[in-house]
């Protein structure tokens, strides 16, 4: 899915590199240098998502988000910032941003997050509890999972991991995203926790035959086949 993105970033070199990367991944990217230009651009055009730097001259990112939300504009916003404190993140999310990513970010990771936000918008709470992806069915509330109708015994964390992958089947979930959403950590462990758990999940999913449903996207993360 090609996305129409607005990149708001005052550092020209970084912005050009990131824009080129995103374009290279097949998206349309428009770049503006500060908050006021961003407001004008959003007023003029329809974007699928906005990637917004936080510390900028003239109008900073937080104010941009607040102003947009105050005027009822719901465009998905991912804040991209150099400030990494927990309180900074809370500030960003409270202002109305959908996600908060610390610089530097791999373009794949950034796109994965943008797509997750966009998809999250379409996701409705009324959807049934069970999640389906290919021949996999997960029921997070009853802590059970099946593959091709056969029950699979999973530990709690493995089930949460599978549910998250199934919920976003077909999309790439990065290690950072998984650590954040499945483990609930606000830090990135130095150990390869995600890889170990994916490996175990894979083993359990393929124990009774069938192809490996989890795809490794090298250097970025994992994706469950839809």
């Amino acid at each position: 899915m090609s996305l129409h993105l607005l990149l708001v970033e005052d550092d020209a070199t970084y912005a050009h590199g990131l824009a080129a990367d995103l374009i290279g991944l097949g998206h349309r990217v428009e770049h503006v240098f500060d908050g006021r230009l961003a407001l004008a651009a959003i007023d003029r055009e329809q974007y699928d998502a906005v990637i917004l730097d936080r510390m900028m001259p003239r109008l900073d990112g937080l104010s941009v988000v607040e102003m947009l939300r105050a005027s009822g504009i719901t465009v998905p916003i991912v804040m991209l910032t150099a400030l990494s404190m927990a309180s900074d993140k809370v500030d960003g999310l409270e202002a109305g941003a959908d996600d908060y990513v610390v610089k530097p970010v791999d373009p794949h990771e950034l796109i994965a997050r943008v797509q997750a936000v966009i998809r999250g918008r379409r996701w409705t709470a009324s959807e049934s509890d069970t999640i389906r992806a290919g021949d996999i069915v997960v029921s997070p509330t009853s802590f059970r999972a099946w593959r091709a109708g056969q029950p699979i015994t999973l530990a709690n964390l493995e089930l949460k991991l599978l549910a998250e992958l199934a919920r976003h089947a077909g999309e790439v979930l990065t290690r950072a995203m998984l650590i954040e959403r499945v483990w609930g950590y606000d830090f990135e462990p130095e150990t390869n926790i995600v890889d170990v758990y994916i490996r175990r999940l894979r083993m359990k999913l393929t124990e009774q035959g069938g192809a490996d449903p989890i795809e490794t996207v090298r250097g970025i993360g994992y994706s469950l086949k839809p």
């Binding site: 550092d11 070199t13 970084y14 990131l18 990367d21 150099a82 990494s84 610390v102 530097p104």
Partner: peptide
Amino acid sequence: SNDIAHDLRTPLSRLRGQLAH
């Protein structure tokens, strides 16, 4: 420390982007 984070992380991010390219 916010300024340091910003002033150091931004060029490092730039560097990382160029190296990745």
